[in-house]
């Protein structure tokens, strides 16, 4: 079984991005043998009021009763915008959201902002994960209107240090995975999940040894990135790099455990 931990719907405003509806996503899932997808709405990055995007996600999934079994929506919450606590509550209790995504670079706050720390703590208390994206798009050819900087893995350590018992998802690992010794030890102890969509997942076999076999799982970052590369990093592992159990965990076992599925 394959579960995609990192997919999107919605409108990307800087260029045409195809295949960005729930219908498109489910068709691709069916064509590629993907059982379920964790999804986030692009619109939550760009709307001032992110809750409108979360309601759009809920409404879209509701249009087909089969989709709720296969699509796992995450809410976008902006903790420096008014009403975010009510938005979080509505998202988790009424809109069926199974986690939270934050976009500090787009919403212009730092990871150690008190409101961000409070959001992570509240999400933790709901038993839900917080998703952080190291890169939405490659900044080099990105639009002149888009942000121009990206994160490395070490850049997220302030929030991990602030709330070490939260559940963190780290998506599209495009920057360096190098960590100081203490930070690496903290990451190993933290309930933290990294998906395989990012360009810096180069030697997955070695990363499993460094971070732990339970820390990684399949993700596509589609429809921005292609639908196969994240899977290829797992499928091409040799027997000496990943036995059948590890492979299955990478495909779906780790994300199922992480999300409590």
């Amino acid at each position: 079984m394959w579960i995609d931990s990192n997919a999107y719907i919605g409108h990307w405003p800087f260029r045409q991005v195809r295949n960005s509806t729930c219908k498109d996503l489910v068709e691709r899932m069916d064509a590629n043998g993907i059982s379920a997808s964790v999804l986030t709405n692009f619109n939550g990055i760009f709307y001032k009021d992110t809750q409108a995007a979360n309601r759009e996600t809920y409404d879209e999934i509701k249009t087909n009763r089969k989709w709720k079994d296969r699509l796992i929506p995450f809410a976008v919450i902006n903790p420096v915008y008014s009403g975010w606590k009510e938005d979080l509550k509505e998202s988790t209790s009424k809109l069926g959201m199974k986690g939270v995504r934050i976009f500090p670079k787009y919403h212009r706050y730092s990871l150690d902002h008190p409101a961000c720390i409070e959001l992570v703590k509240r999400t933790r208390d709901f038993g839900l994960p917080i998703g952080l994206t190291l890169r939405m798009v490659d900044s080099r050819p990105s639009s002149w209107l888009d942000i121009s900087n990206e994160w490395r893995l070490s850049d997220i350590m302030p929030i991990v240090q602030a709330v070490p018992d939260a559940k963190f998802m780290v998506l599209n690992v495009s920057g360096s995975t190098q960590l100081e010794k203490d930070d690496l030890e903290l990451v190993k102890k933290t309930d933290l999940f990294l998906d395989t969509s990012g360009r810096n997942i180069i030697d997955l076999g070695e990363l499993l040894k460094t971070f732990g076999k339970d820390k990684f799982g399949f993700g596509t970052h589609s429809p921005i990135l292609d639908y196969k590369t994240g899977a290829l990093r797992i499928a091409s592992l040799r027997e000496d790099e990943a036995d059948a159990k590890t492979r299955e965990d990478l495909q779906s076992g780790n994300i199922k455990r992480f999300l409590g599925l």
């Binding site: 079984m1 394959w2 899932m29 069916d30 590629n32 043998g33 993907i34 059982s35 379920a36 089969k66 709720k68 079994d69 296969r70 796992i72 988790t92 199974k98 709901f126 038993g127 839900l128 196969k228 899977a231 290829l232 499928a235 091409s236 999300l259 409590g260 599925l261």
Partner: peptide, 28 residues
């Protein structure tokens, strides 16, 4: 079911389901 109440349909858990299971393809 987790404390947050996450539950997926029986399709996801591998139990008998009316839904046809998604066929995995051999990427390599």
């Amino acid at each position: 079911v987790s404390v947050s109440g996450i539950a997926l349909g029986v399709h996801m858990t591998g139990f008998t389901s009316k839904e046809k299971p998604v066929e995995e393809n051999d990427l390599m």
